[in-house]
Design a protein around this nucleic acid. Structure first.
Lengths: 108, 108
DNA sequence: ACAATACATAAGTGAAGACTTATTTGTTGG
DNA sequence: CCAACAAATAAGTCTTCACTTATGTATTGT
């Protein structure tokens, strides 16, 4: 029994193709659950569950307007993912830098 | 029955915390299966299975040397992930740019 | 050659997860 | 108000998956 970090939630949320497809759709603009349900070949509850998952991961935000709930992408939602990547990317760049330094030193 | 794309494999591979931990460990340097098994609290077969998964996703590469198999990070392995992110990040930046253009236009 | 070491594969198990249908909860138009 | 619509939640099913133990496959040292 372990609390999952936001980072883990983001990775888990994006691991599912349907969820990524929903997220991608939302990057093209706000949409109500109804619209998303029409757009994909899964039931309305499935869509709602995916949205709840994305919301839990901080990737998406819901806004009620009358009978509809409009979802939109949360701008900083991908930050944990970006941070994770840049962290390890930075490591490689650092290694490359150090390699270059080494090579430069050998030139002299 | 559906082929899964490399993109999907990458997302799936990184969705598991143990697998991310193994990947992260490998960014700190090449390691044999034995070393990784010692490092984490799971069995050797579990480690091998995770490595096979990471390899299938193009995130990792194995090199046999005698009885040992040394694994290392595949430098371009994260590219699908980076591409995916920048694709949608580009969309937001574009939106921000257009918003700024609009605001600039209103100044005149 | 063979015992030992390192790793991979096989097979089984329990938990998590992605769906479904059925129902409940909000919210409005008539 | 209430019939109808929109979305969320409940409950059940079937699959996927992360592990385990057991076994197979390479590759050495002696």
């Amino acid at each position: 029994m372990q609390i999952d970090s936001l980072e883990n939630k983001v990775f888990l949320a994006l691991a599912d193709p349907s969820r990524r497809a929903i997220f991608e759709s939302l990057t093209r603009g706000e949409a109500a659950v109804k619209d998303l349900t029409a757009q994909f070949d899964i039931s309305q509850p499935a869509v709602s569950q995916h949205l709840a998952n994305l919301k839990e991961a901080g990737l998406v935000r819901g806004r009620r307007e009358g009978r509809h709930v409009y979802y939109r992408v949360e701008p900083d939602g991908l930050k944990p993912l970006v941070d994770w990547i840049t962290h390890y990317r930075a490591f490689w760049i650092d290694r490359v830098d150090r390699l270059e330094q080494l090579l430069d030193g050998m030139d002299e």
